[in-house]
Design a protein around this nucleic acid. Structure first.
Lengths: 192, 192
DNA sequence: TACACCATGTAAGTGGTTACATGATTGA
DNA sequence: TCAATCATGTAACCACTTACATGGTGTA
């Protein structure tokens, strides 16, 4: 169900068509959720059926049709209800930690190389999220600008701070993973 | 594919039947992977077909049959190959951070309550993982004891340390999340 | 006119969730 | 004999991945 809420959350900023949403969810600077267009288009149709969003057809040129979706009152309610509900505990399932659990079965050098790749990946994520966080604090992202347009200026600071804080969380998690992996490299080196 | 590797990793310690594996993967003290029996039994049959494990039927009483699966040489190879391969970057998809991204849309008190529930959940995980980590360092888990039986005593320390380190990682991530959520509570309180 | 981009779709397969279903064994 | 536990299955549904598929528009 999270994809639907992600879509609702983006559409709350402004109406978009499937292609724009696709670019958003497949974008290189990773966000908090991702999805391919093959998942997005059917989801939008289901959500329209459910009355959470409303589509309006537009024509570019003479034939190129696109459906621009806006969030409905019902969609806003659904989003707010979901955001305000305690999150159901997800089952523990972390493929990288699972892999790390069996590092003792392979050559320490190989294990170290896997850890180094993991560190590099976390660093990349951290860099992207840091940039995004800064942009939010500077109110320098398209979506945030659109969003703030419908909110009283007195709240702008608070909203930007809260959004930026989410990326601080993703950064903190990635940092914890990178630090942990570096400690793992030290453990592996001890007996090499 | 990770479930298969998780099963291989457990069976590397000793042969087990589906029921034992089910108890392991549905267990209350959460491990690094989980799965219901409805997923485990078919997976075991597929893995046997693929030659990764080998089943031997046993009868308890007069009729109660069970299949005890052992890892094969091919299964060991597959597990080692997977463990030694750089982990494919998973798409970013975190339902809790997604939810947190829209905290500005609801009453700060509601948002705070959602964060508090998250903190409580992370604390629970930390407690379970800490206990498990200590048990590993004391060589006080069934599975580790079984595993060490086939390894030279000189390596026991190293193996226990590496396994325990994985849980240190899970703890570090949960701690980062809890700390982040507490910081979120402070942000929400500022304008309440 | 060719290429990059706009725009939307389908289909097959895998992984995971939830519920339904059945029967044997052990011990109080 | 009753309940807890042992033991294994099926089915429907949803989420996600990967690949295939089609055609329009704008511009160099």
């Amino acid at each position: 169900m999270s994809l639907q809420h992600a879509l609702l959350g983006v559409l709350e900023a402004r109406p978009m068509n499937g292609y724009e949403l696709t670019r958003f969810f497949e974008a290189a600077p990773r966000w908090v959720w991702s999805a391919p267009h093959s998942q997005i288009y059917p989801a939008l149709r289901r959500m329209e059926q459910a009355g959470l969003i409303e589509g309006r057809q537009e024509i570019r040129g003479t034939k190129l049709r696109r459906m621009v979706y806006s969030i409905t009152e019902r969609g806003l309610e659904e989003l707010r209800a979901w955001v305000g509900t305690d999150h159901a505990a997800a089952p523990v399932r972390d493929a990288f930690f699972l892999k790390a659990l069996f590092f003792d079965m392979i050559d320490p050098q190989r294990a170290a190389s896997v850890l180094r790749a993991h560190i590099a990946e976390q660093e990349e994520l951290i860099a992207e999220w840091r940039a995004h966080r800064e942009a939010l604090l500077d109110r320098d992202t398209d979506l945030l600008r659109e969003r703030l347009r419908n909110r009283p200026p007195a709240e702008h600071d608070r909203i930007a701070t809260l959004k930026a804080h989410v990326f601080a969380g993703q950064i903190a998690v990635a940092q914890a993973r990178a630090d942990w992996a570096r400690e793992g490299l030290r453990l592996l080196a001890e007996d090499a």
